[in-house]
Amino acid sequence: MLSWLLKLPPFAYRAPESLEEGLELLAAGDGEARVLAGGQSLIPMLALRLARPSLLVDLRRVPGLAEVKEDGAGLRIGALTTELVAERDPLVRARSPLLLEALDFIGHPAIRSRGTVVGSLCHADPAAELPAAALVLGAELTARSLGRGSRTIPARDFFLGPFTTALEFDEVVTEVRVPAAPPAEGTCFLEVSRRPGDFAMVGVAAAVTREGDRVVDLRLALTGVGDRPRLLTLDELGLEGRASSEGLFSEAGRSVGARLRPPEDLHASATYRRHLSTVLTERALRTAFGRADIRGGAAGA
């Protein structure tokens, strides 16, 4: 049972001026300290007393974390970049239609104005949109700690379970890197939720690369259907070597539905989630395929 108490439990609060200072606080917190960025997931968890940290380390004063940059490898989205800033960022709009489409499904304006892209990834809600998108995009997270410096964690190794990631207690994700989309790739994010803005009952992130009418690559990740999103490829779906797109998408949908053991809650039964996974997988793939430029070069949403 959730707590009936909605005032936040007591905790200490620090807003360090530098990343190093923040890392020191986390290291000293011995697992009882939590990083606070936008707080749009963490504060409700505190209000419902699902989390009881002794210390919150607010990153708000740490310089240099709120930027979106581009280098040869792709986009770099800093830890304090809000969903609102990301969705309006010209680089994101130009380079990552899938991310943009996923962002549009998140919450409402007053949530996106503070919620951060990296925060959503680190929160690892099994029904959230961005982890699925990150998997399909092949994103990588940069984590830093006081003792061990910096390391890179690919998205496919990052999500371990519900609200659980590969991050150690003393680490901070400083940015997420989103590789440039290959030419001739089309993408689509689709979801069904009870109301617009709610977490998905089922969401699908899809990327398809085509040559003419042939599908040469396909990546999928579903949200809301398990303890964490998982990346699925043509190989994993047992569909490698399939030449024509016709029939492929419905087969992919059936294959996805068959392999899932989705959870059940008051919004959707497991059977319904499995059914939706089939329906949405097919729709998302078809749309992504339609968006992929036959001649090469990414086409937007």
Partner: peptide, 23 residues
């Protein structure tokens, strides 16, 4: 909504769904 053990499942506004301006 209650589960078979009598626990209440709709105890937040994320679970008890009020219609919005889009509904």
């Amino acid at each position: 909504a209650y589960d078979p053990q009598g626990q209440y499942l709709s105890a937040t506004l994320m679970d008890y769904l009020l219609p919005t301006s889009l509904d």
